[in-house]
């Protein structure tokens, strides 16, 4: 988790797993989530272990989340946007809707 040492000037609000999160415009989503105290981004597929960003530079693929219904996106490469709906990634992605497809 991260602690901001400079106040965000231009603020945006989005949600993570339903809760409102504040960030600064221009933040990467991964950094914004860490700065908001989120410590687990996803549950791993094989061992179902909690995971969080490791590299913050697009290499490790640990920061995968669902952004506006698109699953498994690298949150370290996406800038936060006002109103973004972000959810944690629980194991393997699903294909299609809840009816199985």
């Amino acid at each position: 988790m991260l602690l901001r040492i400079r106040d965000a000037v231009d603020k945006v609000t989005f949600t993570f797993d339903g809760a409102a999160v504040q960030a600064a415009r221009g933040d990467t989503l991964a950094a914004a989530l860490l700065a908001a105290g989120i410590d687990t981004f996803r549950i791993s597929i094989v061992g179902r272990e909690p995971r969080a960003p490791y590299c913050l530079m697009g290499v490790c693929f640990e920061c995968l989340v669902t952004i506006d219904d698109i699953q498994n996106r690298q949150s370290c490469l996406v800038e936060v946007q006002e109103g973004m709906v972000v959810t944690s990634q629980n194991g393997a992605r699903t294909i299609g809707r809840d009816d199985g497809l």
């Binding site: 597929i45 498994n72 194991g91 393997a92 992605r93 699903t94 294909i95 299609g96 199985g100 497809l101």
Partner: peptide, 8 residues
Amino acid sequence: VTEKCAPF
């Protein structure tokens, strides 16, 4: 080959 998906 795709990423891992829930069974479909």
